[in-house]
Design a protein around this nucleic acid. Structure first.
Lengths: 369, 369
DNA sequence: TTGAAAGCGCTAACAT
DNA sequence: ATGTTAGCGCTTTCAA
């Protein structure tokens, strides 16, 4: 930096401004080495004598020096920041997802820049922001995104992967639960338990997730000989409240027979449905009507619910996502058009009577997660 | 975006690497202006002819140019990034807090860097990381932090405020609910409802939050003539499960009379207690034992719980926090030692019988939040 | 109003 | 192993 004189020119910056952060130059001066040595001292595999490194580190400690990542990003072109766009924190499932990503990424020494977008609004604006911050990668979950933005990211060399969502035919990559198969799992459970009239509470209509679960569910029922007219669909808006209200309307509809099985396309909706059934409609679950969910959120395991559901293997899905991102070697070309469906598993609890064939599988108490 | 010919000497950078991001120089070249004009075009209040600005903006659009915030931070010394350290995403209250901060900050065009720390671990490491990223401010909630780290931040000119926590005698600033007064509110409700034997499920012992609520609660009871021996305390570890287990142990303890009022020091614990009481211990709430909570999380408003609780005014607390941070003028000296307690409000629902004096206040149905 | 030039704090060749 | 030097992409004087 500027003028400094003779032997130990440490004073200058130290006296400078009250809260000024010290730089590698200050440390270099104090340690009596060149600035690049300081840089090396903080770079794991670099050529530097152990003895020098400790001396530098000591000096750094004395000056409360912390390397400026912003500055280093400028040259390395890596920020070690991953953006997470998340569209629905009201569903504990996504909180869990957030937590899992955050933990993993922190373990790797990466930072998470979070963007919450309101349900049903696009994330395009968020993308513009994170583009400015040169993030190393983007994970998008429970939110919409235009394909234009996806290619904008890709063009700039920023990989983006959709979590629990995919855009057929686009070149966005995604990791998701095998929702079709999962929906079928619930259908099978209902069938095995002897249900005959079915209701579905659907979620977000824009994504593929809800649609796939519905499809897998319905197809399996039809395969099982159920008539299409014995399957009703109502819209639960992916939320507890939406499902709660939809359930009340559904059951009070005098024009149709009451379903004896209800599939909440995600757990939080299944919970809303259960509460409506029990506390508003005076019905017993599963005696009067059985209920199935999807996700396996911890809340669904609690005693008031004990929800039979399909477990999404979050850890595994997060790992897949991260591996597609290729965070640690940016030279790797961006993975395009990958659609990685991962099988979920049926967890038997108490909202669907366990048929004899399945006894012993039931997870009656708490989680083992 | 490759080749294009003619006059404008745009080619240089454009042809460079495949996914290279274009810089202000590229835009300048295409628009036929100097690089500093491009910078001005993207700086709101700067001196630049309208006509020039539009021309630059058009060029930028054509090149998919997005200003590099990392680079600008280097000179401006502002990143527009705020770090949020959050210690407990298992409690929906803090998810709500996170969401509120995130929304507010995004409205202001700021980014949120999130750090999740495991319960009972210190956030010191997180601080070291965010120091590297030169964040403009730090909010810490539901987590521990050494005073050493606080002064480290302060020394570097990074303001930090504790949300719902304070460290007496330190110069960290904090915003919190008036927990002592809130605890007293629940005590009063119990007293008014005629309770005589009290139990407390306490939370995190390290923070002040749980302790303050306990203190306010106990003091108010003693004031009301309750004997100290009629108040039991058990540890619920701030979690649903912790409270669930603690409640079972407490009630099954044959050596003491069964309490007729139980204060879960936060809602999630009150919910755990309620589930244990009803589904494990066969007790009715509030008939056999009344329950009070704290926070007013949406989950507590649901029909299986309808929890009487103290509402924390999150929006207001977030606003206070942000204002203490002085994000928009960094010249402002860092606020030290501020402790801003904000009054909570008792929300009557169904887990404490509503005494005649309070009728009409009851919030029987859903939220108005 | 615009342009030229000097950094911001760091990394990465390239010399030594 | 260490020092020197040239940037990274931007903002910000200072001149024109």
């Amino acid at each position: 930096m500027h003028a400094h004189s003779d032997g130990r020119p440490t004073e200058r910056k130290l006296m400078a401004r009250k809260s000024s952060r010290s730089t590698s130059f200050d440390v270099a001066a104090l340690a009596g080495v060149s600035q690049s040595v300081v840089s090396r001292a903080f770079t794991p595999g670099s050529r530097i004598a152990d003895e020098t490194r400790t001396r530098v580190l000591e000096a750094a400690l004395k000056l409360n020096y912390v390397p400026n990542s912003i500055a280093s990003s400028l040259t390395t072109k890596r920020t070690n920041i991953v953006a997470l766009i998340i569209g629905n924190l009201d569903n504990p499932f996504y909180v869990h997802v957030l937590h899992t990503f955050s933990r993993r990424l922190q373990e790797q020494g990466r930072q998470v820049l979070i963007f919450t977008v309101e349900p049903n609004s696009e994330s395009d604006e968020a993308i513009m922001h994170l583009l400015k911050y040169q993030v190393d990668g983007v994970v998008l979950t429970a939110a919409q995104l235009s394909t234009r933005m996806i290619s904008l990211c890709h063009d700039r060399g920023i990989p983006i992967v959709l979590f629990n969502r995919y855009i057929p035919g686009s070149d966005a990559s995604g990791v998701r639960c095998d929702n079709v198969a999962g929906g079928a799992l619930i259908a099978e459970a209902f069938l095995a338990a002897g249900a005959q009239n079915f209701a579905l509470i659907t979620g977000d209509l824009k994504g593929t997730t809800s649609g796939d679960r519905v499809r897998g569910f319905v197809e399996r029922l039809l395969d099982g000989g159920v008539k299409r007219s014995n399957i009703v669909e109502v819209h639960g808006h992916s939320s507890y409240e939406g499902a709660f209200n939809a359930t009340i309307k559904l059951i009070r509809d005098k024009n149709r027979v009451r379903p004896d099985a209800l599939f909440g396309v995600n757990d939080i909706m299944a919970m809303g449905a259960i509460d409506a059934l029990r506390h508003r409609l005076g019905l017993r679950v599963p005696d009067d009507i059985m209920v199935g969910g999807f996700d396996d959120i911890p809340e669904g395991r609690r005693l008031p619910y004990q929800l039979t559901t399909v477990r999404q293997p979050i850890e595994q899905m997060v790992n897949e996502t991260l591996s597609i991102l290729h965070l640690d070697d940016p030279t790797e070309p961006i993975a395009r058009g990958i659609d990685r469906p991962i099988k979920g598993r049926l967890i038997w609890r108490h909202t669907i009577p366990v048929p004899p064939a399945y006894r012993g599988e039931a997870d009656v108490t708490k989680s083992e997660d």
